[in-house]
Design a protein around this nucleic acid. Structure first.
Lengths: 197, 197, 197, 197
DNA sequence: ACTGACGGGACCACCCGTTCAT
DNA sequence: ATGAACGGGTGGTCCCGTCAGT
């Protein structure tokens, strides 16, 4: 029965992910999730004490994946500008992979504003990203591939840019080839940050 | 009677603005809005046929104010980099002015994803901003204050940056002195975009 | 202004008639009636103190028209069976004339069950019809065109038949050529009631 | 738990039946039904997804009972006129049994006009009755107890008569001893339809 | 005669979380 | 661990009728 239990849990998570991304957290009822997962409400409340708890679970998984992706890219990096460009370029795969789940970002942000527990779990990673990029810029300055600028400010710039692009991806996915635009933007930005010859 | 009507309407709008910003669109009930405005539900549904209609009204006003602000800044601009810096600096006033209303941005975005009517009204201004900044960059190139880059890409960069900062302002207002950070970021960006001596 | 007043009143009556017949009394709101009549609610409540009062007005007009029709037919009658047949045959015109308004019968009946005032106004005419047909049968017996039967019972039969047909017309207008069926039925009935040779 | 469930369902049905018959479908609120059944709204919407669904359930049961009654009478029939008379006479029991529930007919008819789902379920039985009586008349002609007439027309006559009487029973229960009148009317009708000696 | 803003109240639908019974 | 029944409560919508004003 252990196995069945884990399967039920995964079904619920997958169903919730799909519905939250499609209809939004608020508009999705527990009953809907159960129906989509082919499970009764009793099962739901056996695995999660609250709709919000399930949501936090999702949030945790999500952020974990992003962290993993970042780390992976860092390892395979030649120099900093090259690494940043590679990140921008790998965005295309990420967007395709996330498929219809991308709107979850917006759901996380919306709920974060209202629910302290969600806020905590949403904001903390961003602080980590900020630190990560700061270190990256410092590394770039050290290795001489980036001119001498305030690393914290540049990191802010990068994070804001990323977040801003993400939001536009979510809101207007058809409006633009976002992966290409992000690539070009990062290229442009790097030109400006590069040490001048 | 005419005057009373307009006053009631304004009361409702103000009350809704405050509550949406505080608790979110979904979590705010019509009854709450009415109570905060000191009006009956009958009055509410006399002025607005739907909670969403009121929301759209708010959205329209909001975007109108942004447009006005942009135009105003454009008129008082010496050269393009100067203008952009001024925009960034005037952000401090804007943030203080918007006060607690800033989270409305997040509400607009969240709803835009789910409601076509809101989407239309939310996305259209961004397209306009995109065009506006493109023209601004072209002007900068023409006047020699910006090096020769793809204006559309640079505009994307600026809009994304703005949106990203805004989102972070909303999510983590205490986490940083955002107005200052934005100023520095724009400065840094302009250094990179500037024609090189 | 007297004329305008009367016109407004007639507009309201016509609008209400159409809407009641289409959507039912309960499902039709005063606001809808006003809109259809191109009049404000104030005007409505100037002319009628209640939605129900307007309904009663309609009921009165309706019944008056039926009375007129009956009287008219009576005057042009050669003998009783002939008159009855003629009534049945004139039904075709009546149905065509009533057009979409026929469902009003059902509305009258439904409301009559619940509202004493409507009940009074609905039931009273039926009692009159009962008396009318009783007299008609008596006349037929006297003139020798109908065999000796209980006139009251025969009248009940006729009224029930009429009401039953009407109800079926309303519920299933497409299901049958009701005018023809009524004609045949009355013919059949009269054959049975006729004095046997 | 299973048993309790069925009991709750039956309570709801019984309560709804009483209230619909008394106050009408529209005027009866779900809250009233729940209160009368001693159940919570949650329970209501567990058993029925809509007020209308409960109504359709009632309609189905109702029609089923009529069908059963008809079949039963058919089985115990000596010849056709006798059977018809017996039906008319058994009406007294039926009316007493239906007690205050009789107005449900009017509710069914009213709603049938407005709601396609109800219409379907209401009209279909009538078509069956029409077929049933047609066959009955054919049988009467075959057995020589009824003279040679168009069976379809005679069936229409009978159904209309039944419906008409029913409607009058509902609208004016005190106005007449309807069971007696129906008996006499059918008798009279049969005299007319009978093969003449 | 007519307007239209407004009050107050209700209704249906639905939902979340819990409790029994398995 | 899971399923079905249930409790209590709210949310948006809408409606009828009034009345101050024109």
């Amino acid at each position: 029965m252990q196995q069945r239990s884990e399967e039920t849990r995964q079904n619920l998570i997958a169903a919730a992910l799909g519905l939250f991304a499609q209809d939004g957290y608020d508009a999705t009822s527990v009953a809907q999730i159960c129906q989509a997962a082919g499970v009764s409400k009793g099962a739901f409340y056996h695995h999660f004490s609250t709709k919000q708890e399930l949501f936090l679970e999702l949030l945790g998984m999500w952020m974990g994946q992003i962290d993993a992706k970042l780390e992976e890219t860092t390892d395979a990096m030649q120099n900093v500008p090259h690494g940043l460009l590679q990140m921008a370029e790998s965005t295309r795969d990420v967007l395709r992979l996330a498929d219809g789940r991308l709107p979850m970002f917006l759901e996380f942000w919306s709920q974060a504003r209202l629910e302290p527990a969600v806020w905590q779990a949403t904001i903390e990673p961003y602080r980590r990203y900020q630190a990560y990029f700061t270190k990256l810029i410092e590394q770039g300055i050290a290795e001489g591939s980036i001119r001498e600028i305030d690393p914290a400010v540049a990191a802010r710039l990068l994070v804001s840019l990323a977040v801003g692009f993400l939001l536009q991806c979510v809101l207007d996915p058809q409006g633009e080839d976002w992966a290409r635009v992000l690539g070009q933007s990062v290229q442009l930005l790097l030109d400006g940050l590069a040490r001048r010859g």
